Simulated scan of single mutants.
Amino acid sequence: MNSLVIYCNILINMKHRIKLPGVGIIALLIFGTFSQVLPVPVFGDQPTETTTTVSSSLNPSTVGDSVSFTAAISPTPDGGTVQFQIDGVDFGTPVAVDSSGSATSGSTDTLTAGDHQIKATYSGTTNFAASIGTLTQTVNQLQTSTTVTLDPSKVNPDGQTTVTATITDTTTPTTTPPGTVTFNDGTPSAGGTFDSTSCNSSGSNQLVCAATYTAPNAAGSVTINADYVPSNSNFATSSGSSSLTVTPPPKITSFSPTSGTAGTIVTISGSDFTGATSVKFN
């Protein structure tokens, strides 16, 4: 703002000459022999208003993706810098605005799953005003799949089978999903029981969890379910299931002949022989 020095002659009683320095136009209101001096501001050139728009190199992204941010200043300023922030924390040092009015941050691949608030603050110059832009960066979880196997897949009532759940990171298969698995045989329960679950990471970057299941004391089909519970929010949950057949043991009602020599063919009558492979005589 330019300073103005204005000389005004004010007649107060004895015609004193007064020098009035100031930064504005001097307005004089004269009431009789009394003069009042009122300053009126004079404004010089003001900085040009700017807007800052923030964009992402990849939005939405997935955990582990490399992402950078660009701030575009409009109209194109004659300099200045941009300070980027992620969730309120400075991300790198201020970046100089180039001749096209843009500034780009460094890259990061450590953003966790969820939404992150990106802020770009333009510093401004003598000729261009400061401004702020924001962006919401969405980071998706790593997806997983869960498969269930039973060994054996057929048991008698109260029989046991080994239930194995294998969890795979389907987004980046080189990563082993962390966490554990919960097993169940339906809601409400079919009546079977699981012993404690043990988990370990396999050599193929998979999480493998296993438990022994004791079938209910009734024939039928039981659905065994496995729910993956990640210990890291960067991984998505997943579920899998497999069907267990519970068959009653064979029931022999008669056999003929009731005696004979070695090599004699014996006919056995009864029910529930499906799956039976041998007969033992006592």
Rank of each mutant, 00 (worst) to 15 (best):
F31I: 10
A113S: 15
A190M: 02
G260S: 08
D115H: 12
T53F: 07
S204G: 07
S3R: 05
K154T: 15
S131Y: 08
V266R: 11
G270M: 11
S74Y: 04
P248T: 07
V89W: 04
S105E: 09
T214S: 08
T212L: 11
S74G: 02
T121L: 11
T171I: 02
T104I: 01
P188L: 12
T277M: 05
T247K: 03
P60M: 06
F183R: 11
D185S: 06
T170W: 09
F273I: 00
L28E: 15
T81H: 09
G270A: 10
Q206V: 05
N9W: 08
P157D: 12
Y122D: 00
T50N: 07
E49T: 15
V229Q: 15
F183M: 09
V67G: 01
S198P: 01
D169H: 00
D78L: 07
T175H: 11
A262T: 04
T245C: 00
Q85N: 14
G275D: 07
T274Q: 12
N156C: 08
Q83C: 01
V279Y: 13
D158W: 01
I26M: 10
V181Q: 02
T48R: 14
P248F: 00
T70R: 08
T121M: 05
N282H: 10
D272Q: 10
Q117Y: 07
I167C: 05
Q36K: 09
V37W: 03
T214G: 06
A71L: 02
P75A: 04
P173V: 06
G192W: 02
D109Y: 11
S241R: 04
T51P: 04
A210L: 02
T171P: 06
T112I: 13
G101I: 03
V23N: 11
G191S: 05
L244G: 07
D151A: 15
F281P: 04
T48F: 02
A190C: 03
N140D: 15
D90G: 09
N205P: 03
T104F: 01
S102I: 00
T237H: 11
G101P: 02
R17L: 15
N59H: 05
T164P: 01
S269F: 04
A96C: 00
A120I: 01
Y228G: 13
S241Y: 09
A130K: 13
M1A: 11
Q85R: 14
S242M: 09
G92H: 06
S145G: 12
A262I: 03
T171K: 04
A218K: 10
S239I: 01
L28N: 13
L111C: 08
I167V: 15
P250G: 06
T193H: 02
V229H: 06
S271Y: 10
V67C: 00
G260H: 09
I10W: 06
G32I: 03
D109A: 15
I265K: 14
I12F: 12
G133R: 00
T212K: 13
G275I: 06
S269Y: 12
T274G: 14
S221H: 07
I132E: 15
T166I: 06
T214H: 09
P188T: 10
T161F: 00
D227R: 09
T172I: 13
D78S: 11
T245D: 09
T193F: 00
G80Q: 06
P152R: 12
A27H: 14
V40T: 13
S233V: 12
A165I: 00
Q85H: 12
P77M: 03
D227L: 14
